[in-house]
């Protein structure tokens, strides 16, 4: 029986704050409030206004920005594109990252070299990555079309085809981003005690059984972490789309963040852009929350 349930027992008193303690966290708190909480609250307020950043003019318009947003076909397409992009990018990043980590989780010189190579693309800037892949995808003259022509398939302009452009950008993104999941999985794998694998060997466990019953449960928290990081990161996809297709062809690659950027900074409708940003924020919180909830349920696994 707990203390609180004892008749007549007094409820534990929460410790009160002391000023010196507050002083210690004050530097962080000030920065956090100034650069995160305040802009978020300001952005939320802006979404209910017609807001002209450059003229310093604003007018309260209630939910009009949200009404226009949900009626906007380009925005609705951007939401769909973003979800599709997350759906086709996150699973390969997680699965491929895990597979590469499993293969390279050994102390040999070649695995060290390959680890470096796989991580190499991650350190490139988005400008370099998109330059490389635009060269790969270039119709008729690009690496891909040259290869397809050589095997008699015939060229395809991936970035010019509305059905393939987003897939092309997803491939670029996986190539670019595979390094981080791989490193996180490697770090997690190196924490799994070797004795468990020795015991599995003694029990004649197959490699599949070992993977499914030992490795994955042991690194499950990292798996969830990688999934959450990737989902949050790819809901915010912008740079590679902006540089490779500009949202085209026929709006087939325009993402939510690109829509927000264009609305706020190019089209000078900051209130409207803020409304779109609030929706993205809610979607990301829900997505991350769902993943977190799922990860807690799987703990027993």
């Amino acid at each position: 029986m707990s203390r609180t349930s004892q008749p007549g027992a007094r409820a534990p008193k929460l410790r009160t704050w002391h000023w010196p303690e507050l002083l210690f966290i004050a530097p962080f708190l000030i920065l956090y409030v100034t650069f995160l909480l305040f802009p978020m609250a300001w952005g939320f307020w802006m979404s209910f206004n017609y807001y002209d950043l450059f003229a310093g003019f604003s007018e309260y318009i209630g939910l009009e920005n949200y009404q226009q947003l949900f009626a906007d076909q380009i925005y609705r397409r951007a939401v769909v594109n973003t979800f599709v992009f997350v759906a086709i990018t996150v699973p390969p990043l997680v699965i491929l990252g895990l597979l590469i980590a499993l293969v390279l989780n050994r102390q040999t010189w070649w695995s060290a070299v390959l680890r470096t190579l796989f991580f190499g693309s991650t350190v490139l800037s988005v400008t370099i990555v998109t330059l490389i892949w635009r060269g790969v995808y270039l119709p008729q003259k690009g690496l891909l079309d040259n290869f397809l022509n050589a095997i008699g398939v015939g060229g395809i302009g991936i970035l010019q085809d509305p059905n393939l452009a987003l897939v092309g950008i997803a491939v670029t993104t996986v190539w670019w981003g595979i390094g981080l999941p791989m490193v996180l999985f490697l770090a997690a794998l190196q924490q799994v005690p070797g004795e468990i694998y020795e015991a599995a060997k003694l029990d004649n466990a197959s490699p599949w059984q070992t993977l499914w019953s030992i490795t994955i449960p042991s690194i499950w928290r990292t798996v969830v972490l990688v999934i959450i990081i990737q989902i949050i990161a790819h809901f915010q996809v912008f740079g590679q789309i902006n540089l490779m297709t500009g949202g085209g062809p026929n709006n087939s690659t325009r993402s939510m963040v690109q829509f927000i950027y264009e609305s706020g900074f190019r089209q000078w409708t900051a209130g409207f852009a803020s409304a779109a940003a609030q929706v993205l924020f809610v979607i990301m919180v829900i997505a991350a929350g769902l993943q977190f909830w799922a990860s807690r349920r799987k703990q027993e696994f």
Binding site: D52, D72, Q73, I74, Q160, P162, N250, Q267, T269, F272
Partner: peptide, 26 residues
Amino acid sequence: FQGQKSMDDGIAAAEERVNTYLARLR
């Protein structure tokens, strides 16, 4: 031009995008 939209759909989409955007501006 690339056959991704019919002429009527493309024209309607262009008009809607431009006119909605211009109407939004104060």
